[in-house]
């Protein structure tokens, strides 16, 4: 078969490797010879070209921030303030995972049990059944800790996120609607925190529940109906705890998840504001 179009690409390099001329050391020559042998057979050049074309086609490139691209003045240490919303989402995810594991063992009961004191943490000998997860299942203590601190971080992140949004005036056009959605999420987060605070059914839980119940009862017209719906009547007891459990484990997380998806979808469409 006649040779067409001159020497094939890489021929010179291959010849150098074969004849031993040029500046290459022995080891390099050997490597080159091996590479040329493989290249002749497996056409790595084409793979590389296909890969480059593919990367260009899907526009995959290292992120360049808006301020870098347009050479705007930027205060880089403001960037962490722009991840507070993501921090809230992340802590919601961890709270959900640890919460699912906790829900496998949690019993919404106001009964009290006698158990040995838990190390240095408590000198009490009796606990409400709700908190005995800590002592009775492996890593129960760590599970409650993870859930507790996820919740704390989530509320803190949501509050600081609100402050950041307010102070950089990110609620202006085109983001007004998302600001209202965000307020709804803030209220839902506080609701999740409140219902979760009542679940251990400790002294603080009970009296925080009393505050909420009195607030509901003080409301005119719908007050007693709301108290019956949310707190199970005008006195706190087993029904309160059951309702708080349902609210905390099912109703509020599902609503929060839905609203959160909406919130993030709008951010996806509109983009995140930049520090200026």
């Amino acid at each position: 078969m006649a040779k067409q179009g001159g020497p094939r690409p890489g021929a010179r390099a291959y010849d150098t490797a074969r004849t031993g001329k040029g500046q290459a050391t022995g080891m390099q020559k050997m490597n080159l010879r091996l590479w040329a042998w493989l290249e002749d057979r497996f056409l790595f050049r084409q793979f590389r070209r296909h890969y480059q074309e593919f990367m260009l086609r899907i526009n995959m490139q290292m992120p360049v921030s808006h301020t870098e691209r347009y050479n705007l003045r930027v205060i880089w240490y403001w960037y962490p303030l722009y991840t507070l919303g993501s921090l809230a989402l992340l802590s919601f995810v961890t709270a959900t995972i640890s919460g699912i594991l906790l829900a496998l063992y949690y019993v919404p009961s106001i009964a009290v049990r006698t158990l040995p004191p838990y190390g240095e943490l408590s000198t009490e000998a009796w606990y409400s059944v709700a908190v005995t997860i800590t002592q009775e299942i492996p890593f129960g203590f760590m599970l409650r800790q993870l859930h507790f601190w996820s919740a704390m971080i989530m509320v803190a992140a949501v509050v600081l996120h609100t402050v950041r949004i307010y102070m950089t005036q990110s609620y202006k056009k085109p983001r007004e609607v998302n600001y209202f959605v965000g307020i709804l999420l803030l209220v839902l987060t506080l609701g999740l925190g409140y219902t979760g605070y009542l679940l251990p059914w400790s002294q603080l839980s009970f009296w925080a529940g009393r505050i909420g119940l009195e607030m509901a009862l003080a409301t005119p017209l719908v007050g007693e109906w709301a108290a019956a719906l949310v707190f199970g009547g005008s006195a706190l007891g087993q029904e309160t705890l059951t309702r708080m459990h349902v609210l905390h484990v099912f109703v509020l997380p599902v609503i929060t998840f839905g609203v959160m998806v909406m919130h993030i979808m709008i951010v996806w469409i509109q983009g995140v504001t930049e520090p200026h």
């Binding site: 943490l121 203590f141 603080l204 009970f206």
Partner: peptide, 8 residues
């Protein structure tokens, strides 16, 4: 850790 509370 946070303390284990007394029951209600």
């Amino acid at each position: 850790p946070y303390y284990l509370e007394t029951p209600a």
